[in-house]
Nucleic acid binder design. Structure first.
Lengths: 344, 344
DNA sequence: CTGAAAGCGCTTACAG
DNA sequence: CTGAAAGCGCTTACAG
């Protein structure tokens, strides 16, 4: 491994002062054209790359942001990342860490992020344990959580945190209420861990409130918890069909589109038609819901916008602006397609 | 703006040497418990935060790899990235750049990558123009291209490059030949730009060779070029239906699963059943092909493995090992599901 | 315009 | 165990 070439090496080689070399490197005035040319060509010849870390030491801080995501292969999350990229000031780089919801990987990622001197962290869809939360709070590194599960309940919202999401409770309420309005009285729920502090819990509550308002008794027999992947939606639905053979729900509210799509397949394999036999509503609004058969009625989250707004919040956190509201709630939309049928 | 408190400040305040303070900061041995306690409490009292940048200056060089990807929201690519993450030595960070196939963004990303001193670059699914190729070749930065379009044809394979893919020609041949064997004689092709140096061209050639071997005349009227997204597959198929109303193909070979899934929807909307009226084969093997109705017959690329092998190649490139073969071809598999029907 | 020198805030031998 | 000192690779006054 050969030693890296420094500005001093270049200056020596070009027979100029290191100050001059630095001025050339930074495109500053007050350098004669000849010397500038000489230095430039020497840099090229020696294949000189400035050391960003050393540069950062004096003035400009290293611009690097990190994102920790629970599952990069979910298009819901990758769309948010795309939104982040779209809005990222161009001097920033973005480091990616995929945890697959593995706590050990999460911790390794965080170690790495500290080590690499990230200026801020986007936290997507990952469950944040107390230890991590405390560590991050103490690090004072700006953290923007997007659609993540954070145990804020017992403590106050840390000063270096911001949060972007939609109103999950309200969205779940709307979807469930729509099913009720359509005459459904037995509505199954496919949901992530209900004990999650935010997302799962909020959606569950919205579902519950809608049932209540429509005078339908909550039936825990038709509430199924899983990781909301395609496979999970498929398996949960199989289980539902097996367990409720004689009294099938007439509708399913799935807390993710992928789960809904998995459910669609499971129903098909059991000769159940959607929406004739069973109606389905999904959640997220990923692109493929438009192309499934039947196309899926769903709650659409503004994924790109969520990413873009996260960056805006991040920049404010970094520049220490007064942030009046550090919890940003964006609008969702309810997209009605083919997967719901009225029973009236 | 008050001045930030440094380690030297802490050392002075605690009446110890700066070296001792540093040792305490880094949890190193050889510090008496009393001094350690003293320094620790002084740090706390003064609200000292170590400057990570200065820390980074001394310590080992920044290990950082970069990935440039044409579309992060494609699960084909995000799965490869997941594979890369899986196999990445833990001291490395991974920077992500999404280009959306926009050349300007590609160039910005590359600038950034140079600036941030990446130790290597993964190039996923992006078309590499000549300028970029030359730049990268001159930079001597290790580059591993995965399923990318690189104009190698006229020049020799650069020494700092490696390439991972499957045998696209062979895979396309197999899929097309299978349709022929099933009695189909009129097979439409949904494909990316055929003039692409690698992927599109190779798959097109495989398709062509299979037709030839089965004594079927190539018909350019039923070859449709697009970007292979869900929407593109949908639109191309609509176009196909409109243009061939009286002489519809009996089968479609789509060069991506997403295009195949889009086609599925377009056919459904035109009251064409799959596979009864038209058979379909996709390409990539993404998870959702298992859950569509009908489930999709497809060529499956080993996405995680492609990511993992890319890292292995990258590490060899970085450590300058002798690389006997810098083009790695992995095995694909042909997955037969419900979307093809025999006409015999 | 230009070069020698003094930092930036830490880490790491080195001598005791 | 401990402190003084020499860097890390660059930037920024400063004097000419």
């Amino acid at each position: 491994m050969k030693k890296r070439v420094t500005l001093a090496d270049v200056a020596r080689e070009a027979h100029v002062g290191i100050g001059t070399a630095s001025r050339v490197l930074n495109d500053m005035p007050d350098v004669s054209p000849e010397k500038r040319k000489l230095v430039l060509s020497t840099m090229k010849k020696m294949n000189f790359k400035p050391n960003r870390i050393a540069q950062g030491l004096m003035s400009k801080p290293m611009k690097m942001l990190a994102v920790v995501v629970s599952d990069i292969t979910s298009t819901f999350f990758s769309s948010i990342i795309k939104g982040i990229e779209n809005n990222l000031p161009k001097e920033y780089g973005l480091m990616l860490f995929n945890t697959s919801l593995d706590t050990k990987r999460l911790h390794t990622a965080l170690e790495m992020i500290y080590e690499k001197h990230a200026d801020g962290l986007f936290f997507l869809g990952e469950h944040m344990d107390e230890i991590t939360l405390n560590k991050l709070e103490q690090s004072h590194m700006p953290v923007v959580a997007v659609s993540s599960k954070i145990p804020f309940t017992n403590k106050k919202f840390p000063a270096n945190f911001a949060y972007v999401s939609i109103n999950n409770e309200q969205a779940a309420y709307l979807a469930t209420d729509y099913l009720c309005e359509s005459g459904h009285r037995r509505i199954a729920l496919l949901i992530s861990d209900i004990k999650d502090e935010n997302v799962g819990f909020d959606r569950y509550n919205g579902y519950r409130r809608a049932l209540l308002d429509n005078k339908i008794k909550l039936d825990s027999e038709i509430i199924f918890e899983g990781d909301l992947s395609l496979l999970s939606g498929y398996e949960l639905t199989q289980k539902m069909i097996n367990q409720t053979r004689n009294n099938l729900p007439t509708a399913i509210f799935a807390a993710s589109d992928n789960a809904a799509l998995g459910a669609l397949r499971a129903l098909h394999e059991n000769n159940l038609s959607v929406p004739e036999d069973i109606s389905i509503i999904g959640f997220d609004g990923i692109e493929s819901t438009k192309f499934s058969t039947p196309s899926l009625t769903t709650i659409s989250q503004p994924r790109l916008e969520m990413g873009e707004e996260s960056v805006a919040l991040m920049m404010k956190l970094i520049s220490n602006d007064q942030l009046l509201e550090r919890k940003m709630t964006l609008d969702f939309s309810f997209i009605k397609r083919e997967s719901v049928q009225s029973k009236k």
